[in-house]
Structure formats: C-alpha cells, structure tokens
C-alpha cells in the first residue's frame, strides 16, 4: 500500500528504477529489430498512401462495364453529315494521330496533372465526315448506351479536343473506357464519355447524362 500513497512522480520514478533493475528495458537487439520493423512498416504505409491519395478516382455509370472487343468494335460518325463513316479499331488507329499532354480535372475536386494522350483530333474526324450547315452540336455515345454527353460544334472543334486511344503510352486501361474516350481538357472530365462508340452531329443540343441530373452543360474549368 506504500505505492498507493506515494506521489505520481515518485511512483513513476520507482517504476522506472524497478523496470531497469529487473532487466525489463528493451535489449539493444530487440530495440534495433523494433526500429527496423517500424521503418519497413512506415515505408510501406507511405508507398501505399502515395499511390492511393494521388491519381485517378474512377467514375462510371456504365454497369456492367462495356467489354471492348477489337474485332467487333466500330466507331460510327453520323447524323447531319455529308459522308457518314464507320471505323474499325484498326482504321481508327490508322488516322493521323496527335499527342497531347494535358491536366485532367474532375468535378469532384481531384485532378491528374500531365496526362499524355494519343489519339485523333476531332477536327480530323469532322473534316472526314463534313457536317451539314444545320449541324451545330455533337453528341458522344458510350458503348453501353447509358452514358453520353455533348458539345457545341464550336467547342468540339477546339484544337485540343481528342478521341484518345492511348494514355501515358499504353492502350486505355479498362477503367478509362477502351478503346477510346473523348478528351476535352478545358472542361471537367464528365464531358468526355469513355468507351466511345458513336459521334453524332445534330441540329439541337442533346443534354448529357449528368446534365439531366442537374450538372452544368458547359463545364468550363475556371482556374
């Protein structure tokens, strides 16, 4: 009961002394093992967090996810055009390609800097199909026929609008809508449908999937 009545400081000091006397402090070998273990665990944690906190957060309403089959895939460009066009995957890849490095911004607040896209400029595709004078809008359809979005023709013909089929030097991974997605780097990412399968020129605006749910039609990024 002596211990109970002593002051905290004396009690703690006594504990420490007793611990040392009983040989209960960590031996050097165990201390180094603990240190090494903590260092490895810390390093692993930082590595894991680094790959999780930066980078892409995947969004898709196409469920089940469309499956890309290189043989069956067709990109149809039609609507109010003089020369409708259907491209196979190989024909899409054979069109004059451009490379673009741009920042990707999601409306949710995350972004990915310096993404390298390879693909075909929408200007190139538009020149091939020659829109008729009434065509003022372009709708982009996903393979699963759930998601779509649109741009005005003027927006679609900005020089950095791409039908992208490679990202950072590799074919689009399944999360990013292979074989091709629309890239409109001046607007939030929801303006760029993935699993792009149809480009339709229209005389009236076709409101997109998220715009039907209240999101902005012109999703310009204001820096």
């Amino acid at each position: 009961m002596d211990e109970r009545t002593s002051s905290t400081a004396r009690r703690a000091g006594g504990e420490r002394g007793a611990a040392a006397a009983a040989g209960r402090v960590l031996s050097r070998g165990r201390f180094l093992a603990l240190l090494a273990g903590s260092a490895v665990a810390g390093w692993a944690a930082v590595k894991a967090l680094g790959s999780l906190t930066g980078g892409w957060r995947i969004n898709t309403v196409e469920q089940p996810r469309p499956q890309f089959d290189a043989n069956a895939y067709r990109l149809t460009i039609d609507g109010l055009v003089e020369q409708p066009l259907t491209l196979s995957y190989g024909e899409l890849l054979a069109l004059p390609a451009v490379r673009q490095v741009s920042d990707f911004h999601c409306v949710e607040g995350w972004g990915v800097d310096d993404v390298q896209w390879d693909g075909v400029s929408l200007q190139t595709i538009t020149d091939l199909v020659r829109p008729s004078p009434e065509a003022g809008f372009v709708t982009f359809h996903s393979l699963g026929e759930i998601y779509r979005d649109s741009l005005t023709l003027e927006q679609a013909l900005l020089p950095d609008v791409l039908v992208a089929y490679r990202m950072d030097g590799a074919e689009l991974p399944s999360d990013h809508g292979p074989p091709a997605r629309l890239i409109m780097p001046r607007m939030y990412g929801y303006k760029g449908p993935k699993w792009l399968t149809r480009i339709e020129f229209r005389d009236r605006r076709d409101i997109g999937y998220w715009e039907e749910r209240g999101w902005r039609v012109d999703a310009w990024i204001e820096a």
Partner: peptide
C-alpha cells in the same frame, strides 16, 4: 459551387483529405 475556390487549390487539398481519411 465552383466559384469560391480555384481548381488548383481544391486539387491540392483533395489528396490530403484522402490521406487523413486513410490514416
């Protein structure tokens, strides 16, 4: 609303929020 904070600031905050949440 997108009119209060700039996109660069928001995108610099996002990974911190994620990291704190995971921690």
């Amino acid at each position: 609303t997108k009119s209060v904070f700039g996109v660069g600031f928001v995108e610099s905050v996002f990974p911190w929020h994620t990291a704190l949440g995971l921690i």
